[in-house]
Nucleic acid binder design. Structure first.
Length: 568
RNA sequence: UGACCGAUGGUGUAACGGUAGCACUACAGUUUUUGGAGCUGUCUGUCCAGGUUCGAAUCCUGGUCGGUCAACCA
């Protein structure tokens, strides 16, 4: 009954379905154990975190099994593509920490080869030039339930097809006049097998081939053959291409390819709660100015995440933790937040910054005096060393850290109560000063010199506050970002509603922050923890005069939960 | 009323015919000069109905629910 091998099995890490397939292929000697994956973006937009999952998957699989990964631009539609996107995509892939097998490939490199393959299919009687309009072709295709009708041009002679394709290439026809179609089966239950288009006429300038071509291959015609040409072993794409696989196979079959051939596998794309992922919707957010560009820190784009302050390591960890499977999923954005906190907790220097200041005066601290107090740069990183923080009579603390009539669970400052100022002293609150509106303008305290940080003291306090010395404070701009949508599934809204109806009006708040002087060394892209508040990244908008910070993510806030529950 | 794919706690993901595990979330305790971080623990799960089997999340049959497919997009 008891199987001793169970113990051994327990140590074996579990594999996702693609790893299982690859391990099996290696075991059976398929491709001589070779693994070559590819990441095939179309250069028509910016990469988002869903692409990042695919990148981590393709490159990660190759790394794990001693293989390589090709970066290949699927540039078969010149009207939508540009080198701007090519460059941005390369930057993002590199930033994520992956190196592709040089050189960079382009589907457009294979246009001539693809053309020859097409001629081959025509000669075999497996492809034909069709003169139907797009509209008529659409009508004739039928529906998934109803078979299509065959094109009247389906039985042209090989010679005529060859001649027509040649003249299509030479530019004798206008856009839309004719297409080249595969001759498969108009009655197939799979719509993609109903004589799919292989070439369409597009008199358009291509960002790489210029005006050399005026016919361009479709995705289905280009993709599998590109995989074959590059000797890709495992061609991994998302679920919606599953129905394309029979066509992928058909082309390879009918090209009489004898050598190793690629195989297509499909996995479920990433969806994230409280955000949208479709390129169309992201474009809309940018064009209609709901956000400030593709790299707006609220965007789920790689460039947006980068600017927000996410690290490549955190995104890789995230991609790893979301797993790979074939079922539709929506990942809780809390997992992403967990991954970045986990990473930055170990790496980010600490600094004390007050975002919603109220003045605190220490009555028994001499006017005009100040002192430099030592503080840890990062208590989680023993190597990080010390910084010093200036202390003086007048400080800022957060308004939320004071309460005139606190509940029992409030561990911060209140009249008659004591707290520690982090890295400084324990203080006792004596009184408050208010303006004519009843708003507190000053909190008066006394400090206990024998409680200086590092000294032995018997004075126990329940709370520790961050603070900043007013005369030494550095004024900075802080952008407080929150999730872009108020609902967890903005792409699944009801009829008559639009995802934009659920944009969070408070997704960005800009405030002035008061920061300890150590912040002055900040450079664009650098991450900090503002103690007790969250992680913040130095934005590229920073100038000599004014630093700008983007809030990456707050710290977990268990007080906020207590407060919320109290109000119930 | 087609074809294909999928279904395991709140969210993801393992278990490959033999004790349903892991992560996130939530909650509790512990610790703490960040109500942070850490550590410990707890709650919650195999879509349904049959069948095969000593034994089924796993195999079979039939349902149910969800997704994808009708661009000269990718």
């Amino acid at each position: 009954m008891n199987k001793p091998e169970n113990n051994a099995a327990e140590n074996k890490p579990s594999l996702n379905f693609l790893e299982q397939i690859i391990e099996n292929d290696i075991k059976t000697g398929k491709h001589q154990g070779r693994v070559l994956t590819r990441f095939p973006p179309e250069p028509n937009g910016y990469l988002h975190i869903g692409h990042a999952k695919s990148i981590c998957l393709n490159f990660g699989l190759a790394q794990k099994y001693n293989g390589k990964t090709n970066l290949r631009f699927d540039d078969t539609n010149p009207t939508k593509e540009s080198t701007e996107y090519v460059d941005a995509i390369m930057e993002d892939v590199k930033w994520l920490g992956f190196q592709w097998e040089e050189p960079v490939w382009y589907a457009s490199d294979y246009f001539e080869q693809l053309y020859e393959y097409a001629v081959y299919l025509i000669k075999k009687g497996k492809a034909f030039v069709c003169d139907m309009s797009a509209e008529d072709m659409s009508k004739g295709r039928g529906t998934p339930q109803i078979p299509g009708v065959e094109s009247p041009w389906r039985n042209r002679t090989v010679e005529e097809n060859l001649d027509l394709l040649d003249r299509m290439r030479k530019g004798e026809f206008q856009n839309g006049d004719r297409v080249l179609r595969a001759k498969i089966d108009m009655a197939s239950p799979n719509m993609h097998m109903r004589d799919p288009v292989m070439y369409r006429i597009m008199h358009a300038h291509h960002h790489r081939t210029g005006d050399e071509w005026c016919i361009y291959p479709t995705y289905d015609w280009a993709h599998g053959q590109s995989d074959f040409i590059e000797k890709i072993t495992h061609s991994i794409c998302t679920l919606e291409f599953e129905v394309h696989r029979p066509l992928y196979e058909w082309f390879l079959d009918n090209l009489d390819i004898t050598g190793e051939r690629p195989r297509q596998y499909e996995f479920a794309r990433l969806n994230l709660s409280y955000t949208v992922m479709s390129k169309r919707k992201l474009l809309q957010l940018v064009e209609e100015k709901y956000v400030n560009g593709w790299d707006d820190p609220r965007m789920p784009t790689v460039s947006g995440l980068r600017r927000r302050g996410f690290t490549p390591a955190s995104i890789r960890t995230f991609a790893d933790r979301v797993g790979v499977a074939k079922r539709e999923n929506i990942i809780d954005v809390a997992l992403l937040e967990y991954c970045i906190r986990e990473d930055l907790n170990k790496k980010a220097p600490r600094t004390m910054t007050v975002l919603n200041p109220v003045k605190l005066v220490i009555d028994n601290y001499p006017e005009g005096q100040s002192e430099e107090l030592p503080a840890l740069i990062n208590p989680e990183d023993p190597e990080s060393g010390n910084r010093t923080v200036p202390f003086s009579r007048e400080l800022y603390i957060e308004r939320e850290d004071f309460m005139e009539n606190p509940s029992k669970k409030f561990f911060r400052l209140a009249p008659g109560q004591e707290v520690r100022l982090k890295y400084a002293y324990v203080i006792h609150c004596n009184s408050v000063v208010k303006d004519e509106n009843g708003e507190i303008t000053e909190i008066h305290c006394t400090y206990f010199p024998d409680t200086k940080s590092g000294m032995e003291t018997t004075r126990k306090v329940k709370g520790t506050l961050h603070w900043v010395s007013i005369p030494h404070a550095v004024e900075v701009d802080v952008r407080l970002y929150d999730r872009l949508f108020t609902v967890s599934e903005p792409e699944a809204v009801e009829e008559g509603q639009d995802f934009k109806d659920f944009i969070n009006p408070d997704s960005l708040k800009v405030v002035t922050g008061w920061c300890e002087p150590s912040i002055k060394s900040a450079v664009a892209g650098q991450a900090f923890q503002f103690e007790r508040l969250g992680y913040f990244n130095t934005d590229k908008d920073s100038t000599e005069e004014k630093l700008v910070f983007n809030r990456t993510v707050t710290l977990r806030d268990s007080w906020a939960k207590i407060e919320k529950n109290q109000n119930k």
